[in-house]
Structures are given as C-alpha cells and as structure tokens.
Amino acid sequence: MAVSSWAASTSYSLGDIRRGATDQVTGLFFKCTTAGTSASSEPDWPTDIGSTVTDNNVVWAAISSVFEELSKLSPSAIIELFEVHLSNDLHGSNDIYRFHNGCNADVTSNITWDGNAYSRLPIIADGFEYSSAGTLPRPTLTIANLDNTITALLVVVNTSNHGNDLVGAEVRRIRTLKKYLDGESTADPNAQRPVEIWTIDRKSSENRDAVQFELASAIDQPGVKIPRRQLIGNICQWAYRSSECSYTGSNYFDVNDNPETSLINDRCGKRISSCKLRFGENNPLPFGSFPSAGRSS
C-alpha cells in the first residue's frame, strides 16, 4: 500500500497518512491528527518522530516510514537490534554493547546501522508482547556464551560492583528493516519502529552455553511510582464531562451503556466501550486508564 503525497487545498480526515510532496523528509510520513483542509503551500515538515506541524487548519504528526514497507505483501525483512547501555555508577563504565541475532534476511555477519556496528550473536528474545490483562511483560534475553563473552563482561562489572550481574543496565530493542541498513541503496537511520527501553532486573541463569537476563519496564521497579496517579487498568479515572474527559455531546447512556434520552440520566460506565459510544468507534479516545503500559522513545 503506497502512501500518497501531500496535496494543497485538500480536505484530510483524521488518521490520513501522507508523505511530503516536494520536501521528502527521510524516514518519515505524516499522520493527520486534526482534520481539516490543507494550505495552498506545503508546510515545513518536522524531522523527528512525534513532532507536529500545523498546515492551515490540519495538524500532522511525524511517524516512521516503516509503516509503508510493512503494509506491503512482501515487506523487507525485519531486523532486530539490541543495545545494552551500562551506567558508570552501577557498572563502572558508560560502555554501550550492540548486537543482533542474525536470524532474519540471512545476515551472517556484523551489520552497521545509523553508523553503529552491531555484532552478530545468537540471541533468543522472548516475552515482549503487551496485553490488556493488567500485568506488565517481563521479557527474557538469552545470549549465547560459548566464547565466554558475556561471562567476561559480568566479571568486569562485578569487579566494580560485587554481585551486580548487569542489574540496572538499560536494554534498547530497535526494529528496522534490512533495506534501511547502512550500505543499502535505501539506507535510512530514521526508518525504525519506536525504540523499546527496558531495564535488566536480574540475571536468571548462567552457564557455559548461555546467559539469560530478565527485563522489566522502567515503571516496573521496586519503589518506583508514577507521580500522582495509580496505574489502574480498564477503569477510566476522569470525571465524566470534565476537561480531561472532554465529552460535551448530546448522546446519552447509562452506566451499562444503554441509550438514555435525557442528560439527567447520563452516566459513564468508565469502560472503553463507554468512551467509544460517545466519541466514535474509530476516533481517538480520551480514556483515562492504562489498558497496557510501557516505555518507548
């Protein structure tokens, strides 16, 4: 599915995705977050994912161009990269270790992306899926240790901080496509899915074959709390028809989502289904809860 170019004086709906017409911003497409009609001249597109630009009365947000490639019937192979960032306070250095598992696209050697070299190393990354059940994922990262590479790293870290075993190190999971790697004709360091950031919570096993680490979300740490708000799943915490809720419409429902005819009987059920009835099935929802939570950048 190809993404069309932006056009002047054109009506755009919420969720429409366009590419730049004359100014092709590398690695980025733009998603309509406020519907309206575009200006007579092309806007100055932002260059960072998540940044926005106002185009007459349309607002566009920058998203990754990986969207287009993944929408094809035969997309380029997904490349999964990992970075382990040490902290001088915990591990005695601020070194960064980069590696990939080489499973996709028959990549059998080290690769370079965004100017950084990633060493090929057998890795099993499991458990990154999110669910709405209320429990944050606790992924595991199992890294081959046949040449004692990981054991040697642990020895160095534990010399600085006895028994640390890389606990507290930041793990970044980066996913891009083979066509965007350095050296490819379509190389693009901006073409990537949102980076996932995790923290090593513990070393769960170590032997001469492999070392396994259990990861945790940045908010799934002992003593860590989100300021002012509890992490409650599937129950909206906003006061109905408040500024946070933002609903001012004349469609009325009771707490069980049954239609009502008057405002006096209008009650929100505090569920996503209640939100959809008022704002629309496919529109953005100001739902004040956390069906799933994590950290990305």
Rank of each mutant, 00 (worst) to 15 (best):
T112I: 14
D254Y: 02
S38T: 10
L285P: 01
R208M: 11
L70N: 10
L263M: 14
L14F: 08
T186W: 14
F82S: 10
A125L: 14
S5M: 07
I197L: 01
Q24V: 12
I197S: 03
E214K: 07
G168L: 04
D209H: 13
R175D: 01
R228G: 11
N94D: 10
S242D: 07
N148A: 13
G288Q: 06
S274Y: 09
D266H: 02
I63C: 01
T140Q: 06
R295S: 07
E244N: 15
G134Y: 03
L14T: 08
L136G: 09
P43M: 04
Q237V: 05
S71M: 15
P291V: 00
L263K: 14
P222C: 04
D114G: 10
K270T: 08
S87A: 13
N94V: 00
T10V: 06
A239G: 12
R271D: 11
I96P: 01
G168Q: 03
K178L: 08
C103E: 14
L86I: 02
A35I: 01
S296W: 06
S273L: 12
L141E: 04
L86D: 01
V53W: 06
S262A: 12
T199V: 14
L285N: 00
C236N: 04
D23W: 06
W6C: 01
W238D: 12
I78K: 13
E260N: 10
E196Y: 02
R295E: 06
V255N: 05
V59P: 06
L215R: 05
C275Q: 03
E83H: 06
P259H: 08
T248E: 08
N164T: 03
V167E: 04
S160F: 15
A218L: 15
F128S: 12
D254T: 04
N116I: 04
L28H: 03
N207S: 09
C275T: 05
Y97R: 09
L121D: 07
E42M: 04
A39D: 03
I232T: 13
Y252K: 03
